[in-house]
Each structure stands twice: as structure tokens, then as C-alpha cells.
Nucleic acid binder design. Sequence first.
DNA 1: GCAAATTTGTCATCTGGACGACAAAGTTGC
DNA 2: GCAACTTTGTCGTCCAGATGACAAATTTGC
Lengths: 265, 265
Amino acid sequence: MKTISSPIVDPLMDISTNVRENDFFNVDDEGGAWSDAHANFLSSLSEAETSDLMKCSHRLNLKSRDHLFQAGDHSNDVYIVARGCIRLFQISSTGKETILWFSFSGEIFGMAELWRGNGRQIHAVANEATQVYSISRKNFTHFLGAHPEAAMKAIGILSARFRALGNVLVGLTSDNVEIRIVRLLIRLAAASSGTRCCAGSNEGELCVNVRLTHQDIANLIGASRQTVTTTLVQLRKQGAVRTVEHHIHIVRPDHLRRLLEQAAA
Amino acid sequence: MKTISSPIVDPLMDISTNVRENDFFNVDDEGGAWSDAHANFLSSLSEAETSDLMKCSHRLNLKSRDHLFQAGDHSNDVYIVARGCIRLFQISSTGKETILWFSFSGEIFGMAELWRGNGRQIHAVANEATQVYSISRKNFTHFLGAHPEAAMKAIGILSARFRALGNVLVGLTSDNVEIRIVRLLIRLAAASSGTRCCAGSNEGELCVNVRLTHQDIANLIGASRQTVTTTLVQLRKQGAVRTVEHHIHIVRPDHLRRLLEQAAA
DNA sequence: GCAAATTTGTCATCTGGACGACAAAGTTGC
DNA sequence: GCAACTTTGTCGTCCAGATGACAAATTTGC
């Protein structure tokens, strides 16, 4: 739980609480690939590395729903979230949106598209008011070359992301909608745990600190909006979750855990 | 189309034909992420890099169906396929197999799991008689540290793999089984194009040079074996594909391309 | 503060594809 | 070369979840 003290770092950047020791999260797919994947890149860097990276970055302010880049764009920057949340998604040939990822404070994104000439494949949109640092492809590859340690971390993050996506894929082919929603909520609770919940949360409750419409959830798990609504109503009736100020709280993590275990049996 | 001439490189390693200029493959998801992802890591290295890497590798011979590693294993090696084909898959909590990937000659795999302590998450099995080079985690990270260029290539490959997986995910949520099979065949034809087809192939025909049961295809696209059989029979009746010596040939690439276009409209 | 737009909740209807079952064809190992 | 096993092909049945439609509630922007 360290606080970054480098003077170069923006005061916005108080991402001091990426604590994921909560035992519950390990229920999720074998060893928390999801948490690894949401590792805080920025805070994993040394002071020298952070300083070097910040020197060649500049900050962008995004309002909710602002587009950072779209499929087809030829921008080739890497971004690090300073504060807020970025939604990364893809549009299929039939026009359907599939959300691949949310990037929270300290997370790096846009990396996977650096080494390809054909422009972006995915879309990046601010999910709420968000500040990001942008680093040009040239500066970033130069940075990685100069800091082999950081390059290893980048590979590690990319790897974790890859594994997480693999798990989603497996879930998609073998779990029903209810289980997929439960998994998603647990994952998002873990991923967003770095951001503090403004709303009061009761004892033992987990906060999924992302603003999500049912349509968003549907796009994340590959289901229809209606089915998501119905399933969520059920979970609420069971007392497993509740809605607090536009986001979901997991009231009874143990209940969700049990659902997961039942599905496996 | 270069041939590796370094004396350290095994004579088995005649992967001189990873030609992917075939225009057809670009039909596939915006810009051939799939082909990038199946990039030949080994032949992309310089002679000095190859030599360094080979020094610390040792070769393994696998019979068809031999297990290289399983989920839970604590082996931490990276592998490069010398010849043959490795199937990489995951088993869900309900026991269902999902094939994530096939690695062909020259491709590197096992990388995504280097940076995690909890052992393997996926399974690697020889899909046919296969030779691989194995490099220990320690040697590999050391190698990457010493060769920043190679590290960049590794990141590039990981990135492409990541994008490819993202595309599969999108396809899974928005395409029906027929389209998913068509996409798969096109992708595999591109990926396996480095291996020459022993069977005679007619003019304009593409060879999917991997031995696959219908069950395998089902595990790759998240469908049932029966549906795959039925769909494949249909495609065969349409004259789009044919079966040659345990593998599939795409007789009329244009026909498949048209199916894809229709689905998008 | 109110109109417009978005999101939620709940129907009834329809279907792609899963699942089980089984025979025929093909493959493997001793 | 034959027995055991695996894979293919084809049924009929069934259901999770997609789709469309609409009213109620909530949010947003001027």
C-alpha cells in the first residue's frame, strides 16, 4: 500500500489503495488472473521509471462518453489511466458491441495495438469523467528499450490480460447467463476495488464501482439486455446484490460463491 | 522467404515458407491479426539472437497426444515449435474443453504463463508427432533482457495473440455456428500455410493442414459436435470444402468469403 | 424544471442449437 | 488381421435465451 511521492506525479494520481488481499477474489478462476490483469502498471514502476515515462507523456481530460480512439484510427499512443475508467470494446461485423475490458486508475491500455500498422481494432471510450496520460508509440518503445524491467512488467500485464480473456472465452462457452453475470460482478469488484466507493457499504459487502447499464453487462457477457435484467432482478430478490447510486454492491459474496460452486458440480 | 543458415539451428527447422501474402486471408478480421498472431517468432530473430536462444534450449520429441504440460503444472518453460503442431486448451469447471490456440512451426508458446507463480492454467498437447525447443523461464527472461529487440518481438506476438483472442470472443457472441466454422477454417488455413500439404490440392484450393476431429472444431468454436458435423456436411454439399487425408481443403474460398459478407449484411 | 432521451422491468413468442441415442464407417494397437 | 475404440452421420426432443413490444421509472440536457 505505497503512496507515490515522486514530484512529477500528478496529485490526481492518488491510487494508493489497490489492495486485493481479499480472500474472496481467489475464488475466481484459478489464482486471480483477473486481478493480475488489472495490475497497476504505473505504481509497479520504480521512481526513475515513472519519472522517465511522465516526462514524455501528456495529460488528457475526458468527459463521460468521450471517444479516445475508434477502430480504424491511426493514432498509435499508449495510455495510462490517471483517474476514472475507460471502456474498451469492439464492434462486430453485425454491429454488436462486445466490451473486452475496463481500465481503471494506474492501468495501461492501447499497448496491444502498438505493433501493427493497420490502425486500431478496438474502441476506447471514457466510462465516466476520466483523465489519462498519453504516451506516443515512439516514446513508449524507447522507454521500454531503456528500461528492461519495465518491459518485463509490460509483458507480464499483457500476459495476464491474455489469460483473463481466455477465461472469459471459456466461460462464454460453458456457463449460462447467471453464472457469467456472477463471474463478471466478482471480477469487476476486484478490478474496481482500487477506487473507493462513495456510497455507504455495509459489513462484508463488495462494491462494483463501475457505472453499468444492463446493456453494458449484456455486451460484456454476450447476452441480451432482457435476460440480464431478469437475472439481476432474481439475484436482487435472493438478497445477493443491491443497487446503490448507479452501481451494484455484492451484499452476500458467499451466496455468489456458492452459485459458482454449484455450477461447477 | 529467408532460410535460416545459422549452424546451431537444427536441420529439422526448415520453416522457410511462412508466406502469407495470399490476398484471401485479409478478408478475415480487419488486417490479419490472426496471421500476425501466428508469426514465426524464431525466423523473425537475427542470427545472433537465434544462436543465443538455441544455446540455452534443448529439444523434445513428442508423439501425437503427448502432454507437454497441464493446468496446475509448475513447470515454467517457454517452448518453440520446431516441427509439428501443439494444441493449447483450457478445461472449464464443468469439464468442457476449449481450444485456445494451435502453435505451428517456429511459433513460441507458454509465454503468457511465465510471469505468474501459480503454475499453468492451460494444457499443451502434441496434435501430431512434434518437436519443440524448450527454454527455461530463467534463460528466457535473461535472453529478453539481453536482446531488447527480441523482447519487442515477444510483446508484438503476445499483442497479436491477444487481439486474435478478442476477435474470437466477438465472433462467439455475434456469429452463428456456420460463420464461426467458416472463420475458423480460413484462420487455420492461414496459420498452417507454412506447412506444406502432402495431398494433392487443386488450383485455388486452400489447405487447412491440421488434423481435426469434429469434436476439436466444436471445442474451438464453442459448439456441439453434432452441430459441427451437420454444418460441415452442408458446406461439403455446397462444394465449398472437401476432406483430404484427414484434413480439410477449402475448395472454393470465394464461396466462404461470400458467406462471411452475407452474415455481415 | 420540464421535455426528450435513456434505462429498467415484464410480457409472450419463437428458434438455434444442445443433448441423448444409435448405427455405420474408420482407425489403432496388439 | 481382428477386436476395441474413436469418429462420423443422422435422428427426434427440448429449452435457454434471443427478439419484439410496450409501459414505467429514471436521467439528461437545455
